[in-house]
């Protein structure tokens, strides 16, 4: 054989790389992070730093164990997206070991055991979240109330104190913790209180009549639109997901508003927008064909609604995503685009 090893064209590139793509996603998450800090206090920052530390340790160990170069892969930022997604999902004041365990599980079982970046079939963040939700339901449902309900938020030191020790001297934490709207809706329904009543009880004191949780979702939308413009995510994901979710909730809300909340409430509560722009858009685990992406997103939207309203969990996003992850190879197979010059 010829020893000359030709390098193939093209000899130019648009200077994009994985790190930049991941970084863009991370940056797009900042509006929501800031909003979160403003509304729920610094708990999330502590959690995020904890997760970051875990990430560095786990990645280093795993890459070493797998015999891969550490530096390029630890800096590919993909783990960062995973832990950011996870951090947004857990209660800001959950004990420190929750996030450590969750991130470790997500990174090892969600990514490295499948062969690392690009090879994982399931969304690592959602895998970690589901692991935590099933294993530690109590810790996972103790949410802080947003600023408008609690009247105050915890600063960084207080949050850290609580996360590590479990209490803050001279502070009654019960005053600022409570159920999320989705949770109270579920509890209300089980006690025979109609959706309308539950939502009327809500004290809406914030701007535009939106609750704190809803404002976080709005912040996600802002970051997400930025991602679409910079082509970091495909528009099919949010459009398909939100469209399907809105459609289903509209239909059921029309059928029985007593039982089913309105479209606006559905779209702006729980992790809807986080999922729409940051979680389901993870390209590794999503469908890759344009049509497939849309179908995948629609599937998640419908599943989320089903789990929220008839399932055992208040927010079904993680389960919906994992379920659709399984269906991705099938979707890809049947949604191949028409190649130029070929008949359909």
């Amino acid at each position: 054989m010829n020893t000359f090893n030709p390098s193939s064209s093209p000899f130019t590139h648009n200077n994009q790389n994985v790190r930049k793509v991941m970084l863009k996603v991370q940056i797009a998450a900042f509006p929501a992070l800031l909003m979160h800090v403003y509304l729920f206090g610094y708990g999330i920052v502590v959690q995020w730093l904890l997760a970051l530390t875990t990430l560095l340790v786990v990645e280093y160990v795993m890459l070493k164990m797998r015999g891969r170069p550490v530096l390029p892969f630890i800096t590919d930022m993909s783990g960062l997206i995973t832990i950011t997604g996870l951090v947004f999902c857990i209660p800001p004041l959950a004990p420190w070991w929750i996030i450590v365990l969750g991130s470790t599980f997500a990174l090892i079982f969600g990514k490295h055991l499948y062969g690392g970046l690009g090879y994982n079939p399931f969304n690592p963040a959602m895998l970690g979240y589901v692991f935590l939700l099933i294993s530690f339901p109590v810790q996972m449902t103790q949410w802080i109330l947003p600023l408008d309900l609690a009247g105050q938020t915890l600063d960084f030191i207080q949050s850290a104190h609580y996360i590590f020790i479990g209490q803050i001297p001279g502070f009654n934490l019960d005053a600022i913790t409570g159920a999320t709207p989705l949770n109270s809706l579920r509890t209300g329904l089980s006690q025979g209180v109609s959706v309308i009543q539950t939502l009327q009880n809500k004290d809406v004191s914030m701007l535009f009549g939106l609750s704190g949780w809803e404002w976080v979702n709005v912040a996600f939308v802002v970051g997400g639109i930025g991602l679409i413009i910079t082509r970091s995510i495909s528009w099919q994901f949010p459009v398909g997901f939100l469209g399907a979710l809105a459609l289903v909730s509209f239909i059921f809300n029309q059928i029985n508003p007593e039982l089913y909340p309105s479209v606006g409430f559905t779209l702006l509560n729980g992790g809807t927008m986080l999922a729409a722009f940051f979680i389901i858009t993870d390209p590794v685990t999503a469908s890759t064909t344009p049509k497939g992406r849309f179908i995948y997103a629609c599937g998640i939207g419908i599943l989320v609604y089903v789990i929220r309203n008839w399932g055992a969990f208040p927010d079904g996003i993680a389960f919906a995503i994992l379920l659709m992850n399984i269906a991705v190879p099938l979707i890809d197979q049947y949604t191949q685009p028409r190649v130029f010059g070929h008949k359909v």
Binding site: Q16, V21, G116, A286, T288
Partner: peptide
């Protein structure tokens, strides 16, 4: 640039 694993971003398809 170092070659990284495919992240299935779909840019190539677009």
């Amino acid at each position: 640039e170092m070659q990284m694993p495919c992240i299935r971003c779909g840019e190539c398809m677009d």
